[in-house]
Amino acid sequence: MDTNGVDKVSTKKNGFHKGPMELYLVRISPACRAVWLYVIQNELPHLLLDVDFSKGPNHLPPVFRNHPHQEVPLLVDGDVVVFEATAILRYLSMKYTSSAGFGMSLPNQMLCESVISWSFGELLRSVGYTYVFPQFLESYSFSPESANEVVIEKGLRQVTTHLEILENKYLEKSKYLAGNKLTVSDSCAASVLVLLEWTGFSFKMWPKVESWLSKVKQQMFWDEVHTTHTDFVRELERANLVQR
């Protein structure tokens, strides 16, 4: 458990707490990383709590036992419980940050929120669940192996389509996805796309995407939030499972 700007926390029997918010996460998750990044960039006092689903539901924190959706990220802020990254980011922006990082104008803010929803919906399904995860995570692979290969090939086609959209639509005339200034939507989409690093994927065919991704990864606290991801990629490289 990491404490960030928190001196003391009193926990109630029902799993809720008094004081600063609690963010439950799995650090390898793109959605969790994006929420965590927003929290620390905006200096919101919080407790960071890692969740291990592999031990079964009986070993989950109390708040999960009382919640119908046992998934992360999960934010507990007093008696308020918010799940799904898109909803958490919206909640934080409305209550604490005056929409910081979502753009200055209403059109920019709505585009930003739309891209966030797309990132953790369609983009993550294609990049993560259809292309990357079946190659490395047994729980997401299909049997027999021939079926898994079909899924992965489908995922690659979908990834290519998404990259074409980013290259030729979003980034054709703008530096970032919701205009010419970095927003939360860039962090969310990038947190998903870096999953492709597990496979040694090259973005050279999409130079605007490659340049944009490089800029997004230079923002403050990105490296800290993505340490687990980076360490995992290095492990894959040492095992010769990533082709560069």
Rank of each mutant, 00 (worst) to 15 (best):
Thr161Arg: 12
Glu149Cys: 04
Val159Trp: 00
Ile152His: 04
Glu145Trp: 03
Tyr140Ala: 10
Asn148Met: 02
Pro144Ala: 05
Gln135Met: 08
Phe133Thr: 01
Leu137Asn: 12
Ser146Met: 05
Glu145Gln: 14
Leu166Trp: 10
Lys154His: 13
Ser139Leu: 11
Thr130Tyr: 01
Glu149Arg: 07
Pro144His: 06
Tyr170Ala: 15
Val159Ile: 02
Val159Cys: 01
Val150Gln: 09
Val150Met: 03
Ser139Ala: 15
Glu138Gln: 13
Ser141Thr: 14
Leu163Phe: 05
Val127Lys: 01
Tyr131Lys: 02
Lys169Cys: 12
Gly128Phe: 01
Phe142Lys: 15
Tyr140Lys: 14
Phe142Val: 15
Asn168Lys: 09
Asn168Ile: 09
Gly155Arg: 00
Leu166Phe: 14
Glu167Asp: 15
Glu149Gln: 11
Lys154Arg: 09
Glu167Ser: 06
His162Asn: 10
Leu156Thr: 02
Val132Asp: 00
Thr160His: 06
Tyr140Thr: 07
Val159Phe: 00
Glu153Pro: 03
Thr161Pro: 04
Ser146His: 09
Ser146Lys: 08
Arg157Ser: 12
Thr161Trp: 09
Ile165Thr: 14
His162Val: 04
Leu156Cys: 03
Tyr170Met: 15
Asn148Glu: 09
Gly128Cys: 02
Phe142Gly: 08
Glu164Tyr: 09
Thr160Pro: 00
Glu145His: 10
Ile165Arg: 11
Leu166Tyr: 08
Tyr140Gln: 12
Val151Glu: 04
Glu149Leu: 01
Val127Phe: 01
Lys154Met: 06
Phe136Asn: 07
Gly128Lys: 01
Val132Tyr: 05
Glu164Asn: 15
Leu137Trp: 13
Lys154Ser: 13
Gly128Leu: 00
Leu137Met: 14
Tyr170Thr: 13
Leu163Val: 03
Asn148Pro: 09
Leu137Lys: 14
Gly128Asp: 00
Glu164Ala: 11
Arg157Trp: 02
Tyr131Ser: 03
Thr130Ala: 10
Lys154Ile: 05
Tyr170Gln: 13
Phe142Asn: 12
Leu166Asp: 09
Pro134His: 08
Glu153Gln: 09
Val150Thr: 13
Ser141Glu: 08
Leu163Arg: 02
Glu164His: 11
Gln158Phe: 08
Arg157Gln: 12
Arg157Asp: 11
Glu138Asp: 14
Ile165Tyr: 09
Pro134Trp: 07
Glu167Val: 09
Gly128Ala: 08
Gln158Pro: 03
Leu163Cys: 05
Thr130Met: 06
Gly128Glu: 00
Leu156Tyr: 10
Ser139Lys: 15
Phe133Ile: 02
Leu156Met: 06
Glu138Thr: 12
Ser139Trp: 01
Gln158Glu: 10
Phe133Pro: 00
Tyr170Asp: 12
